[in-house]
Amino acid sequence: MSSLLKNIIRFILFILFQVYILNQVPPLHQFIVPYLYFLYILWLPFSMNRFWLLLVSFVFGLTLDYFTGTYGLHAAPCVLIAFIRPFLLNLLIPQDTTEQSYLEPGSKSMGWAPYALYAALLSFAHHFYLVLIEWLQFGNFVYFIGKVAGTTAISLLMILLAEMLFHRTGRARAKG
C-alpha cells in the first residue's frame, strides 16, 4: 500500500473515530475530553515537505471542525503541532539513520521513550492551544492547567494504546 493511500485512509478513519466514537463519550470529568484525532499528524511520514505538512494538518483540522461546527477551532492547534513537529523530531531522533530506514514516527523507528516524549509534548501543545482559543482567556488558571493536563494524559494513554494495538513497522521498502 502506498504511503499516500494509507494516509488518506487514516485521514478518514481518524476523523470518523473522533467524531462518532470519542465525541459521543459522555463527559467523564470536567478535566477530561478524549482527543485522539491529532495522532494522524503525529503519524505523517518523515519525508513530508514542511509546507505540505502544514497544509494537510490545516485541512485535517478543518475537516473535524466541519463535523463539530466550530470552524477553525481544531485547525489552529493542528497547524501549530504540524509546525512544531519537525523541530521536535530533529531533537529527538538521530537524523541520518532513522529517516532513511523508516517512513514515519513510531515506537519502532524512534524507541519508546523518545516516541512517548514526542507524543506527550505535541499533545500538550495541542491541548494547551486548543483550550486557550476555546476560552480565549485563561480564566481560572488551576482549572485551565488541570484541563490541559487531564486531556493530555488521556490522549497520551490512547496514543500509547494505539501504538501497541496497531502493528506499524513503518519501514521504508525502497530503502530496506
Binding site: 514542511r50 509546507f51 505538512l53 502544514l54 497544509l55 490545516f58 483540522g61 478543518l62 471542525d65 470552524y71 477553525g72 477551532l73 485547525a75 489552529a76 497547524v79 501549530l80 504540524a82 509546525f83 519537525p86 482559543i133
Partner: peptide
C-alpha cells in the same frame, strides 16, 4: 514553513 504556519493560523483564527 513559518510563513505558511502564520497564514494558516490567521485563517483559522479568523474563521
Amino acid at each position: 514553513s513559518f510563513l505558511s504556519f502564520l497564514v494558516l493560523q490567521v485563517i483559522s483564527i479568523v474563521m
